[in-house]
Design a protein around this nucleic acid. Sequence first.
DNA 1: TCATGTACTGAAAAGTTTTTCCATATAGCA
DNA 2: TGCTATATGGAAAAACTTTTCAGTACATGA
Lengths: 117, 117
Amino acid sequence: MAYEKKIPVDLDCPLRLTMSLIESKWKSCLLDELRSGAEMRPSELHKLLPEAAPRVLDLQLKELVEDGLVSKTIFPELPPRSVYQITQLGSSLLPIIDAMLRWGEAHMDIFEKKYRR
Amino acid sequence: MAYEKKIPVDLDCPLRLTMSLIESKWKSCLLDELRSGAEMRPSELHKLLPEAAPRVLDLQLKELVEDGLVSKTIFPELPPRSVYQITQLGSSLLPIIDAMLRWGEAHMDIFEKKYRR
DNA sequence: TCATGTACTGAAAAGTTTTTCCATATAGCA
DNA sequence: TGCTATATGGAAAAACTTTTCAGTACATGA
């Protein structure tokens, strides 16, 4: 990894703790894609989030796994296969992800007018 | 400002839009401090969030004002005086801030054990 | 006069995240 | 053989955020 975080998450404030777990650019999107609870392969997630460089999703999935929000299973096959799945802890964040998604939908027009072009 | 953002907020995805408005290190804390709706002076906010450098709070408050989540009133007095107040739009984010605060409180112990020391 | 408080700002350094590029390894297919 | 697909990872560049430092300006009180 290019850079090792000094403090993995923010333990000083409950609000900052939650934020620090999901604030990276693609983490909330990854949790949203994994919301159904289905096992998903990395290549699937890459296709669903084509804007993100594959390397970035790998790195952020790794952190989600370290933090216990997502699980990873590796099958010792060739060609290699692995699957990601949201954990119970990760699922408990989904109401927050949902609320942010709905807020964004409800207020997108304001920010479209304000910032587009 | 040292660096001018290319895109102020993320308009491509509702979830990313909401995240992009609050994901900066101190923005969610500032909204939490302003939650009551009371007018607050910059020096007050600096005292409530002593971990943050005053300059950072100024910059992040400026963005919150630009995005319409917080209002700012400047009194043309000497010594200068100004107050910040959460707007209706900003208040509509408070349920999300609350949910994150509660999630953090409920799960802090897990991450304490995992990451402290 | 000098230190303190108030609000603000430019510039640069430091810190962190995100992206790009290249490389590994193996199987299947044309 | 050469192309594609699978999953992964090192290294470095680029992009962005956060912090520090120094400075403006004015008023008050010791």
